[in-house]
């Protein structure tokens, strides 16, 4: 149970970073932390006591393996995370080009 709570704390760290930090790069880091907390939680949910990795091989017979499906799903989620993070980094670079700053309190021309 404690490990799920640690996961939740990690997620909250990410959210805090997104909501509270002013630097664009730190916000992106916050998103990455929150994303990985969710992924880690998904992997932990699939774990079972004394389980081993679900890789079939011709030599060893596996009796007690962890749920393989979340691992496949998390791989997909990681790929999606890669795409969004890249896009965010590219956007951040472009924003720096136009505004010459990473401070979001100085980037607020849109309001109302």
């Amino acid at each position: 149970m404690i490990i799920y709570l640690l996961c939740l704390i990690l997620f909250c760290c990410g959210l805090y970073c997104i909501l509270r930090k002013r630097n664009i790069i730190k916000i992106i880091l916050g998103i990455i932390i929150a994303e990985y907390a969710v992924n880690l939680f998904f992997i932990l949910v699939a774990y079972r006591m004394e389980g081993r990795s679900p890789i079939l091989s011709s030599e060893v017979e596996i009796v007690n393996m962890v749920d393989p499906l979340p691992q496949a799903l998390v791989l997909t989620a990681i790929v999606i995370g890669l795409a969004t993070t890249t896009l965010l980094v590219a956007l951040a670079m472009r924003i720096y080009e136009k505004y010459k700053t990473f401070d979001i309190t100085k980037i607020k021309e849109l309001r109302g």
């Binding site: 890249t86 980094v89 590219a90 670079m93 720096y96 080009e97």
Partner: peptide, 12 residues
């Protein structure tokens, strides 16, 4: 391609 594009991005 992502790496190249991010590295070679020239600012104005």
């Amino acid at each position: 391609a992502i790496f190249v594009v991010l590295v070679l991005l020239k600012f104005e």
